[in-house]
């Protein structure tokens, strides 16, 4: 019984961190209607930046947040404005900008292979002041960095939610996501909103990277396992919905952890995709998704 409770709580902790990686993906999709296949690679860029920051300065890993998050924001901002925007403009009369998806896939390959070239295939771990610290409770153990990570995720989600709901920029982002043309007619500069939305999506990855670095290792294709999960989470929680991404992440975390207590962990993937298909059948827009015409 204790094992199941332990697994449940661990699932919530790890799941909320999955949620944070998915928030960035859902934000970019919500605004631009573009699936960013390079998302996992951006997480990898974030993890390498956080890794080098902690490795070179020896500071607390959470102090990397004010450095890595703005860095990733501008990384995303300029990636959108220099690489994706020209393609987007060429495709602006197309209902679904498929070429953009192909470009993001290209960025994925380029980033992964560049890091393979520069850093090698080696797995890197950095020892920080919180690495390996645990929180013990009735013979159950929880990793301190995971607890902190889950806390940061919740704060982040609340802030993002508030930002989109109440700030002027947030309102402009939401307006663009609802109707590109109408928003442009109201004087909102579409390309700038896209830059900012892409930047914010990447900044979320930066945040997730700083949270992962105290207990996870970095290597050039580290984004791939997280990427696949983020896609499931985003569709499960509803495309474009921030609470949906966090709840979706927690659901995935719980299925993975608790499911594995009853069956071989290989089978939890089956369970995961089973739940995923079921949600799609019953509520195709996802748990928190709005019915909208993309």
């Amino acid at each position: 019984m204790l094992g199941i409770i332990e697994a449940l709580i661990n699932g919530v902790l790890m799941g909320s961190i999955y949620g944070l990686t998915a928030v960035g993906l859902t934000l970019i999709f919500g605004v631009m209607k573009v699936i960013n296949f390079a998302h996992g690679s951006i997480l990898m860029v974030g993890m390498f930046s956080a890794y080098w920051f902690v490795k070179l300065t020896g500071l607390n890993p959470y102090l990397a947040i004010p450095v890595v998050v703005p860095f990733l924001f501008y990384f995303g901002y300029f990636m959108q404005s220099w690489i994706i925007r020209p393609i987007f403009e060429a495709e602006k009369d197309v209902r679904e900008p498929i070429t953009v998806i192909i470009v993001t896939t290209g960025i994925w390959y380029v980033l992964d292979n560049l890091s393979l070239l520069f850093f090698g295939a080696e797995y890197r771990v950095v020892k920080t002041s919180v690495t390996g610290k645990i929180f013990e409770f009735y013979d159950m153990y929880f990793l301190l960095p995971k607890i902190i990570g889950a806390g940061i995720t919740i704060l982040c989600a609340i802030y993002l939610y508030w930002f989109l709901k109440h700030s002027k920029m947030g309102k402009a982002i939401r307006a663009t996501s609802l109707d590109r043309e109408a928003a442009s007619l109201m004087g909102i500069k579409q390309s700038k909103i896209y830059n900012i939305a892409f930047g914010m999506g990447c900044a979320c990855c930066g945040m997730a990277a700083c949270v992962l670095i105290p207990f996870y290792y970095v290597y050039p294709t580290v984004g791939v396992p997280f990427d696949i999960k983020a896609f499931i989470i985003v569709v499960l929680g509803g495309l474009g919905s921030i609470p949906g991404a966090i709840i979706g992440g927690i659901i995935v975390g719980i299925i993975e952890n608790v499911g594995a207590q009853f069956m071989a962990s290989t089978w939890t993937e089956l369970l995961l995709y089973g739940v995923f298909l079921f949600v799609l059948l019953v509520k195709p827009s996802g748990l928190f998704g709005m019915k909208q015409d993309f």
Binding site: G3, A7, N10, P225, A260, Q261, A264, S265
Partner: peptide, 21 residues
């Protein structure tokens, strides 16, 4: 315990909890 796990997984905590128990 006889536990296979997928090598590409992002989290092995569930396997370790099972192992410990």
């Amino acid at each position: 315990l006889d536990e296979p796990y997928p090598s590409t997984t992002s989290d092995l905590t569930p396997v370790v909890i099972k192992l410990k128990r």
